[in-house]
């Protein structure tokens, strides 16, 4: 890999970090703020339901984030490095 390609790789990586950072901030503000209260209530009232809901959220977010990061990496040409 020559110097120009490395510079392009670093630039694209920086763009991805900025785009992803914006998405994450929006996610913190909208989704997690909304989820916080009902999940806390569930934690205090029904731990079993809280456990299954939590596992479901973790699995769903894992699949969604994988799709989002793969899409971003691919659009910026970073996915082709794998």
């Amino acid at each position: 890999m020559d110097e120009r390609e490395i510079r392009r790789l670093i630039r694209n990586l920086a763009i991805e970090l900025v785009l992803y950072g914006i998405l994450v901030v929006a996610y913190f503000v909208v989704v997690l703020e909304l989820l916080s209260e009902p999940l806390t209530r569930l934690f205090h009232n029904d731990l079993t339901l809280y456990a299954f809901a939590g596992l479901g959220l973790i699995v769903a977010q894992g699949v969604l984030l994988d799709a989002a990061t793969s899409f971003l990496l691919d659009r910026l040409g970073l996915g082709r490095l794998e």
């Binding site: 997690l32 999940l39 731990l47 809280y50 456990a51 809901a53 973790i58 977010q61 984030l65």
Partner: peptide, 20 residues
């Protein structure tokens, strides 16, 4: 989680960074 040892919101926040 059933024993009250999991903060799901905290795990979801960490996962946002881990995926990338």
């Amino acid at each position: 989680a059933i024993k009250g040892n999991v903060d799901i919101i905290m795990a979801l926040v960490m996962q946002t960074g881990a995926a990338l």
